[in-house]
């Protein structure tokens, strides 16, 4: 079985905290931070979770500030 592991990089200073990426993420990997950026917005952050690099967050982001990477790793066979 191959598994996709994703990684997202968010340009937090340009984030306006609109929440669209958090809502779009199928794996609940994103959240809005309790901290604010220099413009005063609660910016989006990646939290622990199984990001699979689907890029839904980046595609919905109106500011185009999310970069997504995806690596396919072959996991070892699990003996049942």
């Amino acid at each position: 079985m191959a598994k996709a592991i994703g990684e997202v990089i968010i340009d937090i200073e340009k984030c306006k905290g609109c929440d669209l990426c958090v809502d779009a993420c199928p794996t609940e990997t994103l959240a809005l931070s309790g901290k604010i950026n220099h413009k005063g917005y609660h910016y989006a952050i990646r939290i622990e979770g199984d990001c699979n690099g689907c890029a839904a967050c980046a595609i919905i982001c109106p500011e185009a500030i999310i970069t997504v990477y995806r690596k396919i790793v072959k996991s070892e066979k699990v003996v049942a």
Binding site: E7, L32, G34, R46, K71
Partner: peptide, 16 residues
């Protein structure tokens, strides 16, 4: 919908 003490993820540079 913000959380103050959220567990932020550390980026795995090898994927990027």
């Amino acid at each position: 919908n913000t959380t103050a003490d959220i567990q932020e993820h550390t980026v795995d540079e090898s994927i990027c």
